[in-house]
Write a protein that binds this DNA or RNA. Structure first.
Lengths: 151, 151
DNA sequence: TTAAGTGTATTAAGAGAATTAATACACTTG
DNA sequence: CAAGTGTATTAATTCTCTTAATACACTTAA
């Protein structure tokens, strides 16, 4: 089903969550299909059943699995985990955006950067440095917390 | 200079960084003025010099202080740390935004949420739930990774 | 040049949280 | 009821993080 990487520094359960997530998202596991039991997967990977249990619990919280006590764990319908994913990401994004606002970045500045992110879709990891200087200048006068709050 | 709160669960150096940051941002320490020496502040707060050292190092990385070996640490000019602050926040924000894009959120959706954040400046911590459903519906069809990348 | 001040690097001790394990419990089905 | 399933509780262990001890290096002024 999945394979553990012993060179990976992260805890086992986290590694399992990641790999199973990918497997589900990529369609490697059909929705509704039964997952291996906690014990059998534990044997297969040579880890403690509680470790598998922990991974399953996390996956359930994220909407990837649902569980019926005594029967087993199953892959949730796509809409479940897709919604969950979007919800989590958006919440984080909002938090980060508030932080940016409070630091003094203007709505216009962020809107520009937003457009940039969506245009340079493939060309990642650089960007934001050319325009940075402008933003800093723009942000200085009084666009700080008080300014941003429209006082 | 500052006072430690022993009920605070956070590590000492982190608490120091926060309090000194505030002190500098609020204008309590003039730019260019000399900070207490690592050793003297350590004595004053009854902590190990290395702890103070760590706080100073972090403050320096964030642009709040600059250091001359053998002479001491000094408060950096306002533009230094203000720039650093904005730079860090913006970098984080961009990363988060890419993540949102890759999760399948559309540029339009984010632009709306952006506006919302800047309008409800005081009314925090709720929001994003009324519109969530619309976003989820909007995000489903094929606005996922491939769609978002304009393929 | 030397002494007293400053920051810096290295290493180790200690505390605490996080991870994993052991074990017993509870539910479902044939 | 037996064999399968998930769940809860508690303990052992591991490991990271924080703090401390100590030695080094640079700057200044007497």
């Amino acid at each position: 089903m999945i394979l553990l990487d012993y060179r990976d520094k992260r805890p086992i359960y986290e590694q399992m969550v990641e790999k199973l997530e990918r497997l589900i998202v990529s369609g490697g596991l059909e929705q509704g299909s039964k997952m291996p039991s906690v014990r059998s997967l534990a044997v297969e990977l040579a880890v403690n059943p509680n470790t598998v249990q922990r991974a399953y619990t996390l996956l359930e919280q994220e909407g990837y699995l649902y569980t019926v006590s005594g029967r087993g764990s199953f892959v949730a319908p796509e809409r479940e985990w897709r919604d969950g994913q979007l919800r989590r990401v958006l919440t984080e994004w909002m938090t980060m955006t508030r932080k940016a606002r409070d630091a003094g970045l203007s709505q216009e500045a962020l809107r520009e950067q937003l457009a940039a992110v969506y245009s340079r879709a493939g060309t990642e990891e650089s960007g934001a440095d050319e325009d940075m200087e402008d933003l800093l200048r723009a942000g200085k006068p009084g666009a700080g917390i008080s300014g941003a709050r429209g006082i």
